[in-house]
């Protein structure tokens, strides 16, 4: 045995039993260590190991689950934000559209009113012109009749159709109706 080499020099002293191996104790050690190892190996260690591994797995799973949940909630939040953004932009669009519609409507109304006003003005103007023309025509007729009558009184003779026309044309040509007509040129 390897230890006997170092045991020899001190064998003479009274403490030599301290370093001389005791075979019985060695056997006991071997037996008891063997039993301990067998029991721990077959019964204790697998259970402890299994429990530790199971916990390890459980921890890993819960970490994974927590990460998944966080990811999901992040996505959800993102989705909500997206929707909120959409809703806001839609709202803005609606307002914008409403404003545009209102503007268009206002413009249309204004244009319509303008058009209507102009139409009315035009109509009035036309009526005035018509009336004026009618009045002028009446005046002409009156003037023509008066002219014929006056001429007949002066000449004591009935005028022929041709004379009459000529006289009327002459008389009317000298009269200025422009003052009666509405101020068209302006």
């Amino acid at each position: 045995m390897a230890v006997s080499a170092i045991a020899t020099p001190v064998a003479a002293s009274s403490g030599s039993f301290l370093i001389s191996p005791n075979v019985g104790l060695m056997l006991w050690t071997l037996i008891l260590f063997g039993i301990s190892m067998f029991v721990l190996w077959k019964l204790a260690f697998p259970r402890i190991s299994e429990a530790l591994d199971r916990r390890q797995r459980a921890i890993e799973e819960s970490i994974d689950a927590a990460e998944r949940t966080r990811e999901e909630s992040r996505e959800l939040l993102e989705e909500y934000r997206e929707r909120l953004r959409e809703a806001r932009s839609q709202a803005e669009e609606i307002i914008e559209r409403a404003r545009r519609t209102a503007e268009v409507h206002e413009r249309d109304t204004q244009a319509e009113a303008q058009a209507r006003r102009e139409q009315l003005m035009e109509q009035t103007r036309r009526e005035i012109a018509t009336e004026t023309r009618r009045a002028i025509d009446e005046i002409r007729r009156e003037v023509a009749d008066l002219t014929v009558m006056a001429t007949e009184k002066v000449t004591r003779k009935t005028l022929t159709e041709e004379d009459q026309r000529r006289l009327v044309e002459e008389a009317l040509g000298e009269l200025d109706f422009s003052a009666l007509a509405p101020a068209r040129e302006e």
């Binding site: 008891l32 260590f33 039993i35 301990s36 029991v39 721990l40 019964l43 204790a44 260690f45 259970r47 402890i48 299994e50 429990a51 530790l52 199971r54 916990r55 459980a58």
Partner: peptide
């Protein structure tokens, strides 16, 4: 030593909790 080694380890192994 043997009793303590086996005893404590078996005791713990038998009641491993989450």
């Amino acid at each position: 030593t043997t009793i303590l080694t086996i005893g404590t380890m078996m005791y713990i192994a038998g009641r491993m909790k989450a």
